[in-house]
Design a protein around this nucleic acid. Sequence first.
RNA 1: GGCGCCGUGCCCAAGUGGUUUAAGGGGGCGGAUUGCAAAUCCGUUAUUCGCCGGUUCGAAUCCGGCCGGCGCCUCCA
Length: 521
Amino acid sequence: MSIRLYNTLTKTKELFEPIAPGRVGIYLCGPTVYKEAHIGHMVGPVIFDTIKRYLTYNGFEVNWVVNITDVDDKLIAQSQERGISMSQVATEMTMDYCANLLAMGVDQITSMPRATENMDEIVGFIEGLIEKGFAYESDGDVFFDVQKDRQYGKLSNRSADDQQGEGGGAAAKKRSASDFALWKSAKAGQPAWDSPWGQGRPGWHIECSAMSRRLLGESFDIHGGGLDLMFPHHENEIAQSECCHGTPMAKYWMHNGLLRSGEAGKVGGKGDRESQAEESVEQAASGKMSRSAGAGGLRGQIERHGGEKIRFFLLKTHYRSTVVYSEAALDEAAIALDKFYVFFERYERIAGRTFYLAAGDDRQLNTQRSEGDFAPSDSGLLAEVKNYRDTYLAKMDDDFNSGGAVSELFNLLGALNKFADQQHLEEASKRTQAAIDQFLRGVETLRELAAILGLFLKPVTSTSSGGVEVVLDKLVQTFIQMRADARTNKDFAMSDRIRDDLTAAGITLEDRKEGTTWRLG
RNA sequence: GGCGCCGUGCCCAAGUGGUUUAAGGGGGCGGAUUGCAAAUCCGUUAUUCGCCGGUUCGAAUCCGGCCGGCGCCUCCA
């Protein structure tokens, strides 16, 4: 087994070998917490959550850091607009962000450092750069001297001249337009921290260099972020860290593709020719997800769809691809996911208990990769299961190809359903214990593989409370009994009417040999 | 203008030199099952991978050109 991943720095797939054997340090650029998160902010966390799960499954000990940027122009603007302190804005939005992460099943983050809690580290880092001659102070501001960095631009393949830099007042203070701010002097009424250069606050890029060094060391294994951060953010992080330390900042750079909005039916890509005047409308409806374009409402989306559906939707596609988001695309993912949920109910009828593991369950979730789970003599279902498992792992080994892996999950699901059909596992009189045992082992493999993607670990939480669900079940059972009576009397008009009305209410009935079951949707 | 990415069936999407005359999902069609459904299973839906050349014994996969879509270069996950 060997994992390969695509390194943006070299633009090739490389064999993954951590700097220290068995241990992996990952840094992912997190959000600036000034407004509520939107679905695009979940792409990176979901992918890296999956990457960490997979690395852990492969026996690595993973330290995954996601930073929170809680000091920035936009936060200041937000606090002034709302008449509350910047830290209040930050706290509120950080909580929103974390709640969203948890709803998406992202619970693998080791630490989430905040910029404002690392001011000493940040100031110290800047001092180090000045000492080494890579940065200079200018009237209370400190800038990175891009001309001094001979390697500048190696990640994004740009020259220093391409860097526009900040315009306005800062330009006059810089030696070169491409220099970027490490420290910004405070303006009246703005949050500020003490420094050797007077009151001020850090520039955008420095916190990542400072905090990654504190938590992961001068050189760590994987640095991730959205494709849009490659330049200038990551380029500048590299400049800061590598000039300061003289060693590579990260061994592998991974960039995830961005989410685009695909609403408004702009599929053919030909809509803009005739509607130049309506350009702004077009852009609002289709284009990169951004907070300014009104892509917000992640919380509402999670409430409507559930975090697992969105997670599955994101994982269906390779992480480096652009994903076009639309309600229709999400619905399609939901239908696919439903096949698993329906299967879990089937499992429950066969196994006599829920698919989901509880604390102290005698069924074990296999959390470590091993080859000894299947004997060469296994045939039939288990041989098929082994085959799909091997393919699944091979796909994950190849640059975390979650999209390809998902297809093996479906193959596995199909094999299990087919086996349950052929062996009549739902009919007590026809099934054999041997067949059930095989089936259960196959399901354990499905559980093991899905867990790598962070899927099916716990029941999908419904918005309604448990009490309501109990009442609803009693109600539906009453209808099911009425319908059964009608069917006994061959009153199919009545039985169909009951079922149709329930369907219209969002309840699907399923008749099977052992009785009628129901589910939502 | 500079730097990149992408173009696979009706739709989404994996595959990036031979085991692929191309996974998986959605949708369509036909069948099994069912009182009828739902769910499930079976079969079917691309000899072909934007177009044109080239390299190679062999390409969807490599190279060149063209066409089309998208991103970054300003804040952005």
